[in-house]
């Protein structure tokens, strides 16, 4: 739970770095005041939540189908953790240099009411190593409920970043917060590398 929350929290910050500035002019286009912003934000978050529940379910079934024996589960999960965590760190470093948002395309949609929903979809399934890590975690869980819980924690962590965004324009130290977010993403990657290494070494030692 804690690691999923932390992963969500840190990847949410990275997401904010790249996508926040593209998405939020649309979510807060100033049509209808605060209520409209809150509504759009809620639709955006609700879409993400639904997608995450679907992903949690898929990941868990996938895990049940392929990660059958304990030892396979340990090795595959451990190796995927290490691999995706390395990509996550790489990704967070890269993001600092190249701030392009994959969700930008969604904002070109004609019907603006669909923008928060589509943004929610793209934001939750858009390629991100943190998502791959949480999918791996979901697949390795003992029960579907645990997989849901892991995704819920991930969702909660990542959503925290979006809540103060209506005030983002007023934040003086945006750059600083972005930098801290990037480092936090890298650190979350480091946590998963260590988790992966412990799983793999434990697997080797326990035969």
């Amino acid at each position: 739970m804690t690691d999923s929350f932390i992963l969500g929290l840190s990847s949410g910050s990275a997401c904010l770095v790249t996508c926040g500035m593209v998405m939020f002019p649309y979510i807060m286009a100033g049509r209808g005041g605060v209520m409209k912003i809150v509504l759009d934000l809620s639709v955006f978050l609700a879409t993400r939540l639904v997608i995450y529940f679907v992903l949690a379910t898929l990941a868990w079934y996938f895990g049940q189908a392929f990660l059958t024996s304990g030892i396979v589960r340990t090795f595959v999960t451990g190796s995927l953790y290490v691999m995706f965590a390395i990509i996550l760190i790489w990704y967070s470093i890269g993001r600092k240099k190249n701030m392009k948002c994959p969700a930008a395309i969604v904002t070109k949609v004609e019907d603006k009411r669909l923008v928060p929903v589509l943004l929610g979809v793209v934001n939750s399934i858009g390629f991100c190593p943190a998502l791959l890590l949480i999918l791996t975690k979901g697949a390795a869980q003992g029960s579907l409920a645990q997989s849901w819980l892991a995704f819920l924690a991930f969702f909660t962590g990542s959503s925290l970043w979006f809540l103060p965004l209506p005030f983002a324009g007023k934040l003086k130290k945006k750059q600083v917060i972005e930098t801290i977010g990037i480092f936090a993403t890298g650190l979350a990657g480091a946590i998963f590398i260590i988790k992966g290494l412990i799983l793999i070494t434990g697997g080797i030692l326990n035969g």
């Binding site: 932390i6 930098t179 801290i180 480092f183 650190l187 979350a188």
Partner: peptide
């Protein structure tokens, strides 16, 4: 030099 703030955020929460 902002890294300690990320560490602070993570360790305080975890």
């Amino acid at each position: 030099k902002w890294m300690p703030f990320a560490v602070l955020l993570l360790v305080a929460l975890t």
